[in-house]
């Protein structure tokens, strides 16, 4: 191999820093780039609408696989939050910028600020050592949309089969579910907002759908360009 950035460390797996670094002069494009070109997405801010959809692009997304007890220790040490052990749990750190979400009995999704994921993966791997686990960087493959506003719940009722009533999707809950004719991860990090984790290739479809379904309320989809 050439001068590899990847290291064959914990788990005997190859890690790989996908980012070129700030000095490389490389401009990333979020999964909503095409939607922006098509005029479906605007810059952040602007007049208040009944529903706001804001993309949080370029975050670090890591999938953790393994036993709950093993992973919990490492996650607590590195992120300062405990791994949600109960199905559908979602926990955020004190700042609210890092989250860990139950996906299945042996799978969790970690979302951290942009650029943190490679170091975090390496630190977790170092802690986990020889245990049986997997960490997969999926940050290029999905993006996060925040939904807020008075009619956000009603918009979701048009879009997902899951019960988005406060009795169904309580704060601190995250579920994989049907969204129109695709699927999303639907999260409820706080009273005020919902989050959708959408796959990159479906992102424009999801935005088209949200705009169409939200038209009667007034809805804007925003994203900071970089």
């Amino acid at each position: 191999m050439s001068e590899a950035r990847s290291e064959d460390n914990g788990g005997n797996a190859a890690t790989f820093d996908t980012h070129p670094g700030a000095d490389a002069g490389v401009t990333p494009e979020s999964p909503l780039q095409w939607s922006r070109v098509q005029g479906r997405v605007t810059e952040e801010g602007g007049a208040a609408e009944q529903i706001r959809v804001v993309e949080r692009p370029f975050l670090g997304h890591l999938v953790l696989r393994g036993g709950a007890i093993t992973l919990d220790e490492a996650v607590r040490a590195e992120l300062g939050v405990s791994l949600p052990g109960k199905p559908l749990g979602l926990v955020l750190d004190a700042e609210g910028s890092r989250s860990v979400q139950w996906v299945s009995p042996d799978e969790w999704l970690v979302i951290v600020p942009a650029g943190e994921e490679f170091e975090l993966e390496n630190r977790l791997r170092a802690r986990l050592g020889d245990a049986h686990f997997a960490i997969v960087n999926v940050g290029g493959g999905q993006t996060l949309l925040e939904l807020s506003g008075e009619k956000a719940r009603e918009l979701l009722m048009k879009s997902v089969t899951y019960d988005v009533h406060e009795h169904g999707l309580t704060v601190g809950k995250a579920v994989g579910t049907v969204f129109a004719k695709t699927s999303v991860v639907l999260r409820r990090p706080s009273e005020e907002r919902f989050e959708l984790v959408v796959r990159r290739s479906f992102a424009d479809y999801c935005v088209r759908w949200l705009r169409d379904a939200g038209r009667e309320y007034g809805l804007r989809v925003e994203s900071a360009s970089h």
Partner: peptide, 11 residues
């Protein structure tokens, strides 16, 4: 039995 909830058939 893993998610511990009822879900719609489409899932």
């Amino acid at each position: 039995p893993y998610c511990q909830e009822y879900r719609e058939e489409e899932e």
